[in-house]
Amino acid sequence: MQSDHSAARPVGRGAKVRAAVHAATLAELVDKGYAALSVENVAQRAGVHKTTVYRRWEDRESLLTDALAEHMAMDIPVPDTGAIETDLRALARSLVQSFTSPAGQAVLAAMFTGAAHLPEIAAARRHVFDDRLTRAEPVVTRAIERGELVGDTDPAELFKTLAAPIYLRLLITADPVDEATADQAVRVTLAAAHAGALRLAPASEPVTG
Rank of each mutant, 00 (worst) to 15 (best):
F112S: 03
A23Q: 13
T113S: 07
H5Y: 01
L88Q: 14
V21G: 06
K50S: 08
A67N: 02
H49G: 04
S204D: 12
S94H: 13
P165C: 08
V186N: 04
F112C: 06
Q2E: 00
F99M: 07
L158V: 02
T86A: 12
T173H: 13
R132A: 11
S62L: 07
G47V: 10
M111D: 01
L29S: 09
S94N: 15
G147D: 05
R146Y: 00
N41H: 14
D131N: 05
Q184I: 10
D175T: 11
A20L: 02
L158K: 05
T25V: 06
D4P: 07
L91M: 13
G12R: 11
H117D: 09
K16Q: 15
T141Q: 10
T141M: 00
S38C: 07
P10T: 06
L171I: 10
P202D: 12
D31F: 02
D183P: 06
V128D: 05
T181I: 03
T86V: 00
P202Y: 08
A109K: 07
V11T: 06
R125P: 08
E157P: 01
R142D: 08
D154T: 13
F159A: 11
P155W: 07
V96F: 05
E148N: 09
E40Q: 12
V186T: 09
T52D: 03
P176V: 12
R93Y: 03
T208I: 00
A197I: 07
A195I: 07
T113Y: 12
V207L: 14
E28T: 01
G47E: 09
L171A: 02
L91N: 08
V128K: 00
L37C: 12
G47R: 08
A83G: 15
A24E: 02
G151E: 14
A193E: 06
E28N: 03
A67V: 05
F159K: 12
P206S: 03
S94V: 03
G12C: 04
G14Y: 07
T134P: 00
V177C: 13
R169T: 04
T100V: 14
L88K: 13
E28P: 01
H71A: 14
P155D: 13
D152C: 06
A46D: 00
I144Q: 08
F112Q: 01
A115N: 00
P79T: 04
A195R: 11
S38N: 03
A115W: 07
E40C: 06
D4V: 07
L29H: 09
D154G: 11
P155Q: 12
R45W: 01
P138L: 01
H49A: 08
V177M: 12
P119T: 09
R187L: 06
G14L: 07
M74L: 14
R199C: 03
T65Q: 09
A124G: 13
D178E: 10
E148I: 06
D31R: 15
V30K: 07
E85T: 14
A203N: 05
D183R: 11
P206D: 03
T141W: 03
L200E: 11
V30H: 07
V30S: 09
D131W: 05
